[in-house]
């Protein structure tokens, strides 16, 4: 009896050791390349940083700051108006774009999960945004506005009618809830942005949808469920965990893309040419703090509704 117990414990211990061996790269990386720099950047944001170049590379020294008025956070938030302005621009933008991306990618994933001719081809096209919305390509696309500008001029000169613009004028003229419709106009005008931003999300939703067994829909159909009902009763709960993943991914992606204007200014401050590491760090922490709070609130709300199938 004792022997088997021992053996069991032995096995568990071996399992634990093997597990730790497998995740060892991550642990090392996490401690050295994430936790340590994180801690240092927090310190930087709380001190006045002077960078000294000496033999064997650069080092930095920290001077404590006593008053709130001299602190980097104060400077980042109230002195460097550019940062504050950009922050104020980005956050409402995020509030509109993220739900739009989630709903859109879910809808597209539903369609792409159906059987139809040329599905592989269409799916391939929907992956192109993954390439187009990455790295430097995004920044280049927004720069490339001249072509669009010229087209607008031609369209204006030709007196051609733009459907969405006309619709917008009509709706505005009726005066029904301009405030409510404002985000709608914004989404419609920026639909290409949303399509470009939802490449990976579509992939993740499709992979979630594929785990739902068709027999469930069959059973529901036999019981007399309409498609609408079976969507809300079967599809939605089973894919709800994907919504959480996508939410986190979308928020993070939105905030870290290279053309995000807040990120631009943070990079500018904390890069080697900017040399204002302390203010840059304070900006980054302010930004990260806001994002973390937003994410935590959203995740808390959504994870309550998430249904786990197991």
């Amino acid at each position: 009896m004792k022997k088997t117990k021992n053996k069991h414990r032995n096995l568990r211990r071996r399992n634990a050791i093997a597990g730790y061996l497998f995740i060892l790269p991550f642990i090392i990386g996490f401690l050295v390349f994430l936790l340590k720099p994180l801690f240092e950047s927090l310190q930087m944001s709380l001190h006045k940083v002077t960078v000294a170049t000496g033999k064997g590379g650069r080092g930095f020294s920290l001077e404590p700051i006593k008053t709130w008025k001299e602190s980097n956070y104060y400077k980042a938030l109230f002195v460097e108006t550019e940062f504050k302005n950009r922050l104020m621009e980005t956050l409402p933008d995020m509030a509109i774009q993220i739900p739009a991306v989630l709903v859109f990618s879910f809808f597209i994933a539903l369609i792409l999960n159906q059987e139809f001719k040329g599905r592989g081809f269409v799916r391939a096209i929907f992956f192109i945004p993954v390439i187009l919305s990455s790295g430097v390509i995004v920044g280049l696309d927004t720069n490339n506005s001249l072509m669009g500008g010229m087209k607008d001029m031609i369209a204006e000169a030709g007196d051609s009618i733009n459907i969405s613009a006309t619709l917008e004028t009509i709706l505005r003229a009726t005066g029904i809830g301009n405030k409510i419709l404002e985000p709608v106009f914004e989404i419609i005008n920026g639909v290409d942005k949303i399509v470009l931003a939802s490449g990976i999300q579509i992939v993740i939703f499709i992979s979630g949808l594929q785990t739902v067994t068709p027999s469930m829909y069959e059973a529901a159909k036999v019981e007399g469920c309409t498609a609408w009902e079976s969507f809300w009763k079967i599809t939605f709960p089973l894919v709800s965990s994907m919504i959480l993943v996508n939410l986190v991914y979308t928020v993070v992606d939105f905030l870290m893309r290279t053309d995000n204007r807040v990120m631009e200014i943070i990079t500018q401050y904390s890069s080697a040419t900017g040399m204002k590491y302390d203010i840059g760090a304070a900006m980054a922490w302010t930004y990260f703090g806001i994002v973390a709070v937003v994410l935590a609130i959203l995740a808390a709300i959504i994870s309550k509704k998430v249904y786990y199938y197991e």
């Binding site: 720099p37 930087m44 960078v51 650069r58 080092g59 991914y249 990120m263 904390s270 930004y287 990260f288």
Partner: peptide
């Protein structure tokens, strides 16, 4: 996943 790399770039660089 959620830490923006910009947050740690200065210390890492140094």
């Amino acid at each position: 996943i959620i830490v923006p790399p910009q947050l740690i770039m200065a210390p890492l660089h140094l």
